[in-house]
Nucleic acid binder design. Structure first.
Length: 270
DNA sequence: ACGCACCCCTGTGCGC
DNA sequence: TGCGCACAGGGGTGCG
């Protein structure tokens, strides 16, 4: 579930619960996800007041008044459960506010991560330094893609998934954006005509923005105890639609690029 | 440097 | 009903 729009929606939802609150209880329930959870996480966060929430690429950040920032990545299966009735098997971190609100970070595949950073050091964190521009910012442009694609033989889809080139895209939105821009996913990136990059950038921004909007429209559902309903919007034109009929009448195809499923229309995308 | 294969982990859905 | 396999929204490493 979590690509940029889902993380953005999550951060906005968390903000309604956490912003300005004091953390009365911080309870890690295992020592590691993808990598070890900071052993001093409980000690450093308990009693801290949350001063804001942010997102960078697919990372969510929870800032505190102690100069610490909790950075979370949801991996493939991570989600925050709000005011859960009971703690479940894969709830790996529990946060409780002084006002009694409960949050559980649930991630059954444990591809996610938790890090605790000094807030003023985050920009220098190698993980963040390596990230490309935010796709919804002005820093992401046709020019950026042109420079990144120059001389590259890898499929354009693989490069759009490379977080060093543009940060936040995942498999679904890359497939959708390439469909919108009518570009064949396995076309070598360096062979995509320069004139097609501007429309591609616009397609990426449009797909992400409308997904956030769709997530936003379900934001009011976020605080429900079940927590799952809000994020289910299926407006995909090609993703997950192998064998279905494209608007042009041809079947949507699936192939594997870089080990990931790619959905596309052979007639509409060239 | 580049492109790719493979690994991490658990759950689900399908064919047999 | 059970079993085995393919597959799942991410990202890091290591190899040729």
């Amino acid at each position: 579930m979590p690509e940029l729009p889902e993380v953005e929606t999550t951060v906005r939802g968390l903000a309604t619960v956490l912003d300005g609150e004091v953390l009365a209880r911080v309870e890690p329930r295992r020592a590691d996800l993808r990598r070890p959870i900071p052993p001093d996480l409980r000690q450093r966060l308990t009693g801290a007041r949350i001063t804001g929430l942010r997102r960078r690429a697919k990372y969510g950040m929870i800032d505190t008044d102690r100069g610490d920032t909790l950075v979370f990545h949801l991996g493939m299966s991570g989600r925050w459960r709000v005011d859960p009735a009971e703690i479940e098997k894969h709830d790996h971190l529990i946060l409780e506010t002084a006002t009694g609100r409960l949050l559980a970070l649930n991630d059954h595949r444990r591809f996610g991560s938790l890090d605790l950073m000094k807030s003023d050091m985050i920009a220098d964190w190698p993980t963040f330094r390596a990230l490309g521009p935010e796709p919804l910012s002005d820093a992401f442009s046709a020019k950026v893609l042109q420079a990144a694609f120059e001389g590259r033989n890898a499929p354009i889809k693989s490069l759009l998934l490379d977080q060093r080139i543009v940060a936040g895209l995942g498999n679904i939105y890359v497939c959708e954006a390439l469909f919108m821009a009518r570009i064949k996913p396995h076309k070598p990136a360096g062979q995509v005509a320069t004139a097609r990059l501007k429309p591609l950038v616009q397609a990426i921004k449009n797909v992400l923005a409308s997904a956030i909007e769709a997530g936003g429209s379900t934001l009011r559902d976020y605080a429900r105890p079940d927590g799952e309903l809000g994020y289910f919007f299926k407006q995909w034109r090609v993703y997950g639609r192998e064998g279905e009929t494209c608007q042009c009448g041809q079947p949507v195809l699936r192939r594997i690029d870089g080990g990931r499923s790619t959905f596309y229309c052979a007639k509409c995308q060239r």
